[in-house]
Design a protein around this nucleic acid. Sequence first.
RNA 1: GGUCCCGUCGUCUAGCCCGGUUAGGACACCGGCCUCUCAAGUCGGCGGCGGGGGUUCAAAUCCCCCCGGGACCA
Length: 470
Amino acid sequence: MVRVRFAPSPTGHLHIGGARTAIFNWLFARHNKGKFILRIEDTDRSRSTEESIREILEAMRWLGLDWDEGPYRQTERMEIYRREAERLIREGKAYYCYCTPEELEVIREEMKKRCGVPKYDGRCRNRKEPREGVRPVIRFKVDTEGETVFHDLIKGEIRYPNSQLDDFIIVRSDGTPTYNFVVVVDDALMGITHVIRGDDHLNNTPKQIQLYRALGYEPPKFAHVPMILGPDRTKLSKRHGATSVMAYREEGYLPEALFNFLVRLGWSHGDQEIFSKEELIELFTLEAVGKSPAVFNPEKLLWLNHHYMKTYPVDKLSELLAEFLEKEGIVEDASKIDRKWLEEVVVAFRERSKTVKEMAHHCAFLFKAPESYDEDGVKKFFKPEVVPYLEAIAEEIENASQFTKEAIDEIFKRVLDRFGIKLKAVAQPVRLAITGRTVSPGLHEILLLTGKEESVRRIKKAVEFIKSLG
RNA sequence: GGUCCCGUCGUCUAGCCCGGUUAGGACACCGGCCUCUCAAGUCGGCGGCGGGGGUUCAAAUCCCCCCGGGACCA
């Protein structure tokens, strides 16, 4: 039975890189009908917060990453780590070290000169007596002979010279266990079969393998996924802009789009770009994960998001739009908006909006008549000669017995015929009158959505405005 | 500094294991078509094997060296 885990530390948001690691783990579990376990690595109490845990869980739910076990918390497992550390000491595989920071400094210098690596020389290995006034750390007895060889499911065979290693600390002098120790204890005790994580941990693996063996556990299979880089090819971080999953939700991205995008960053299946979750579960394998780091490309995410918006269930998208209309301060109370009508808004705008937030702003004119008109538009389209056209259209609309797409077609046809003009001559002036802008969905849509009376009002108002220009 | 990992269009990538393709797709960009604007759609264009040596009839692909980037250990 495949068992994998995602183990974030709750010291901030769930960021893009962590989310992708979680997704790969989740897909691997689902593909292999295994278990996906969530573990919170909160041993760093000074930097871990409850708020952060809540946010990470929320981000995972938003992405649709459900877990089968957990969330476990390392702070609740301290007793286990203590017990395992003591066991190592009892078995002579670990020892108390009383060296002071000053001594360590000197030792490292010496070792660096001797073998090129600034490491601990293991001098406390055979110490029998404690030292007065020094609280000891616990160090693990590392085998520095030969090399550690393992087969990484993504990177292939990794050979690492053990001479690089030293007796690293597994429990600090304040009694708290270190990362490399707890991660091994947890993964072993939780029965993790595959450790899928960022390749920044690749160099930690040899020492962890030694720990597994010393503790008497079989090491799991490892798969190190390359990191996500910013446009400047350095590790993606805050200074590259929005990097938290929740920030993308706030910006009006769809979870399906972010999910799809993140998977394709480093994983591929031939030329295919769009994948449903079901397809991904079916197709995902670690062999198809690339070895090289990937640069985060916001434009492609935007394209994918737009694609998902165009194919999203209209009722769901309209609910999201309602949410953003409120959040963006475009309407006071979105619950008052007629849902049927709002769905029509979605259909009219989704072709031309890349995010839900953008859509909210694009359709804002429907909720509030324009207070001003686009400056260039006024110069180009609000010419005196369009006044009679607009007046005619307003009048025709006013007198229309019904206000449908067909009726609007008829109205425009009659007006165009009467003046012997093309639609081009009035389309932009009408658009500017209704929306205040030169860009919008088609005339039918904006007129229909704005409504008969409001349309007449806006066109008449535009006529007054043009006249006032003199 | 030592060690480990990585290197195909600007970006994400297919192709590499198992040598023979006009090196394929996608985003972005540019242009045509469509058209009431903007999009969408559609057609086309631009653009790449980090460098150098080998091996071979033939190298993105196999071997060696170098260079570049990243990570880990302090």
